[in-house]
Simulated assay, not measured.
Amino acid sequence: MELVFKVLSLLVIGVSVSESAKFPKNWKNCKNDEKLNDCLKDALQNVIPFFVEGIPNLGVHSLDPLHFDQISIGKGSGPVSLDLDFMDFDVTGIKDVTVDSVDTDWKIMRLEGSTPKLELKGKYKIDGKVLVLPVTGLGDCLLEMDNFRAHVIANMSEKSTGSKTYYNIDHMDFHFDTDLLKLHFDNLFNGDKALGDQMNIFVNENWKEILTELRPAVAKSFAMAFKEIGNRVFTKIPKDLITPP
């Protein structure tokens, strides 16, 4: 949900209960499993509810909703050209994530996940054009993505602190797609209902072009959030508790 969805932080489920890591006793241990990827896939699926609720001792807050202070899309030069800011944004739907695959050698990690619906709700400010039509507005907005699919690639390294070695996420790429993007913007054109209703119809008819404009900034924001959460967890779990020495 790590969508996808801070899910990279869930990779630590292979760790045994020890030291400062206080994991629920029923978490599956994949440390010595010969079929590591299959084990991690099942373990991640089982542990998603714990991360959705949040695990304070690992520095993980509730992942559903996942909160963003701001996501900004700069004006491009294509048929959709928008200065668009999303503010005070909550993302829901991570609790319904299905872990589709896990592939890792602890140097590169690849995860794929999906959820039937991802909902993004908050404030917006927009100025620009969609195809030939100008659009302006400031207010509440709602975006819904049906059959949201995410692919996460993380580059890993090792860092030593004192006598212990920890994994670290150096870089993360987040890619996503959806079968349908539905959008609704309140208070377009300073509250002109007729113009606003028509523009909402128009942007939904052209959702693929809108998605092309939104995708880079949204993916980058997810990647930054998931990397931060993943490293917050990894700094608490020594490497030798995650993988065999």
Score class of each variant (00 low, 15 high):
residue 1 M to P: 05
residue 2 E to T: 08
residue 4 V to N: 13
residue 5 F to S: 07
residue 6 K to S: 10
residue 7 V to R: 01
residue 8 L to P: 02
residue 8 L to V: 14
residue 9 S to G: 15
residue 10 L to H: 04
residue 11 L to M: 06
residue 15 V to A: 11
residue 18 S to C: 13
residue 19 E to F: 08
residue 22 K to E: 09
residue 26 N to L: 07
residue 28 K to T: 15
residue 29 N to Q: 14
residue 29 N to V: 15
residue 36 L to A: 08
residue 38 D to T: 10
residue 39 C to K: 05
residue 44 L to A: 13
residue 47 V to G: 08
residue 47 V to Q: 03
residue 48 I to T: 03
residue 49 P to G: 13
residue 49 P to T: 13
residue 50 F to P: 00
residue 52 V to S: 00
residue 55 I to K: 01
residue 58 L to K: 02
residue 58 L to M: 14
residue 60 V to Q: 04
residue 63 L to V: 04
residue 65 P to L: 04
residue 65 P to I: 09
residue 67 H to A: 05
residue 67 H to T: 07
residue 70 Q to V: 11
residue 73 I to F: 06
residue 75 K to E: 14
residue 77 S to A: 12
residue 78 G to W: 03
residue 80 V to I: 13
residue 82 L to Y: 15
residue 83 D to E: 12
residue 86 F to M: 06
residue 86 F to G: 01
residue 86 F to S: 02
residue 88 D to P: 00
residue 88 D to R: 13
residue 89 F to V: 12
residue 90 D to V: 06
residue 92 T to W: 06
residue 93 G to M: 09
residue 94 I to R: 02
residue 95 K to L: 00
residue 98 T to M: 10
residue 98 T to I: 14
residue 103 D to A: 08
residue 104 T to L: 03
residue 105 D to V: 00
residue 105 D to P: 00
residue 109 M to Q: 05
residue 110 R to F: 08
residue 111 L to F: 12
residue 111 L to I: 13
residue 111 L to H: 03
residue 115 T to I: 04
residue 120 L to P: 00
residue 120 L to I: 10
residue 121 K to S: 08
residue 126 I to K: 03
residue 127 D to I: 03
residue 128 G to E: 03
residue 129 K to I: 01
residue 131 L to A: 00
residue 132 V to E: 05
residue 132 V to I: 12
residue 133 L to V: 08
residue 133 L to E: 05
residue 140 D to Q: 14
residue 144 E to F: 01
residue 145 M to Y: 15
residue 145 M to S: 14
residue 146 D to H: 13
residue 147 N to W: 00
residue 148 F to C: 10
residue 148 F to L: 11
residue 149 R to N: 10
residue 154 A to L: 04
residue 159 K to C: 01
residue 161 T to V: 07
residue 165 T to R: 10
residue 175 H to K: 11
residue 178 T to V: 09
residue 179 D to V: 12
residue 184 H to R: 11
residue 186 D to E: 14
residue 186 D to T: 15
residue 191 G to I: 12
residue 193 K to R: 14
residue 196 G to E: 07
residue 196 G to N: 07
residue 197 D to E: 13
residue 198 Q to A: 15
residue 201 I to R: 11
residue 206 N to W: 04
residue 208 K to L: 08
residue 213 E to C: 07
residue 214 L to R: 03
residue 214 L to C: 07
residue 215 R to S: 07
residue 217 A to H: 02
residue 220 K to Y: 02
residue 221 S to W: 01
residue 223 A to I: 06
residue 223 A to K: 06
residue 223 A to G: 14
residue 227 K to I: 04
residue 229 I to V: 13
residue 230 G to V: 00
residue 232 R to T: 14
residue 234 F to E: 02
residue 238 P to R: 02
residue 239 K to E: 07
residue 241 L to T: 01
residue 244 P to L: 10
residue 245 P to E: 12
residue 245 P to T: 07
